[in-house]
Computed example of a mutant assay.
Amino acid sequence: MPLDQPTLNSLGIAKAPADTRVVVAMSGGVDSSVVAAMLAEEGYDVVGVTLQLYDHGAALAKKGACCAGRDIHDARRVAETMGFPHYVLDYEDTFRESVIDEFADAYLGGATPVPCIRCNERVKFRDLLETARDLDADCMATGHYIQRKMGARGPELHRAADPVRDQSYFLFSTTGEQLDYLRFPLGHLHDKAATRALAAKYGLPVADKPDSQDICFVPNGDYAAVIEKLRPDAAQPGAIVDMDGRELARHDGIINYTVGQRRGLGIGGLSEPLYVVKLDPDRRHVVVGPKSALATRLVPLREINWLGDAPLASRGEWHIGVKVRSTRPPREAILRPKANDLAEVELLTPEEGVSPGQACVFYDLDDTRVLGGGWIWRGY
Rank of each mutant, 00 (worst) to 15 (best):
L11E: 01
G308D: 02
A16W: 04
E346A: 10
V276P: 00
H285R: 13
R315L: 04
V35H: 05
A225I: 00
P17I: 14
L53V: 10
L204C: 05
T174L: 14
E351S: 14
H158D: 07
S271G: 06
T296I: 13
F95L: 08
L307G: 03
A339H: 14
E346R: 15
L230N: 00
S212C: 07
I100M: 15
H144N: 05
D93E: 15
G12K: 10
T258D: 02
V354C: 03
T50R: 04
G260D: 02
P237L: 07
D166N: 03
H319Q: 13
R315W: 07
Y54P: 04
L342Y: 11
I215K: 00
N305W: 04
K323G: 01
T175S: 15
C139G: 06
W377I: 03
C139S: 12
Q358V: 00
T296E: 10
G154D: 14
N220P: 00
L307R: 10
D282T: 12
L3Q: 10
A295D: 13
F170C: 08
D71H: 11
D211C: 04
Q213I: 12
V226R: 01
R263H: 01
A193Y: 13
Y363F: 15
C360A: 15
D127C: 03
A37Y: 02
V370K: 06
R153K: 11
R96A: 14
L301F: 11
R118W: 11
S271C: 01
G357V: 02
C216T: 11
C119V: 04
L298R: 10
A235E: 05
A235S: 15
D367I: 08
T175G: 02
D364H: 10
L128M: 15
A58M: 07
A59L: 11
V46E: 06
L248S: 00
V24I: 13
R246F: 06
P219Y: 09
T368S: 14
S314I: 12
P329K: 01
V30L: 09
R76V: 05
C116R: 04
D309H: 09
D55K: 08
H158S: 13
H56L: 00
I227C: 02
A75H: 04
D222M: 00
G372K: 06
K323C: 15
F103T: 05
G353L: 01
E156N: 08
L53T: 08
S98C: 08
I227F: 03
T7K: 08
L8M: 12
G269F: 10
A106V: 03
F172P: 02
L53F: 13
